[in-house]
């Protein structure tokens, strides 16, 4: 496993802790423009993802990995379609645990 460039699991609220660092999150796509996608984080915050989005069509849920530019924007390097059904609640809880009680288990 490549651990040289770890990315932190975040939801919308956790982004601000990692501005300038590499994060990963899942958003529900609200709209896409040329060069950016607007989505809703698993904790219902709006996130703008910049970068060259993958070739459409995008599915409802999208995982992005990239650098947090601000507390609501990510410059994405990796885009992955996550399908049209996704347990956002579980993902949100995962983010909280990975940055809280079980932080030591995550790189």
């Amino acid at each position: 496993m490549d651990t040289s460039s770890p990315s932190v699991f975040v939801n919308g609220a956790l982004m601000r802790r990692y501005v300038g660092q590499k994060v990963r999150t899942v958003i529900q796509v609200i709209g896409s423009d040329i060069g950016s996608v607007v989505g809703k984080s698993t904790d219902d915050l709006q996130i703008v993802v910049r970068g060259s989005s993958p070739t459409p069509p995008l599915t409802t849920y999208l995982e992005v990995i990239g650098i947090a530019e601000s507390d609501n924007a990510i410059r994405a390097e990796t885009w992955t379609n996550f399908g049209n059904s996704f347990g956002t609640h579980n993902y949100n809880e995962l983010c909280k645990l990975a940055n809280g009680e079980f932080k030591h288990l995550f790189i």
């Binding site: 059904s85 996704f86 347990g87 609640h89 579980n90 809880e93 995962l94 645990l97």
Partner: peptide, 14 residues
């Protein structure tokens, strides 16, 4: 059902 199973395990954790 991975969603409900994850939820089940999450609840075990917390």
């Amino acid at each position: 059902n991975y969603t409900s199973e994850s939820k089940y395990m999450l609840d075990l954790l917390v």
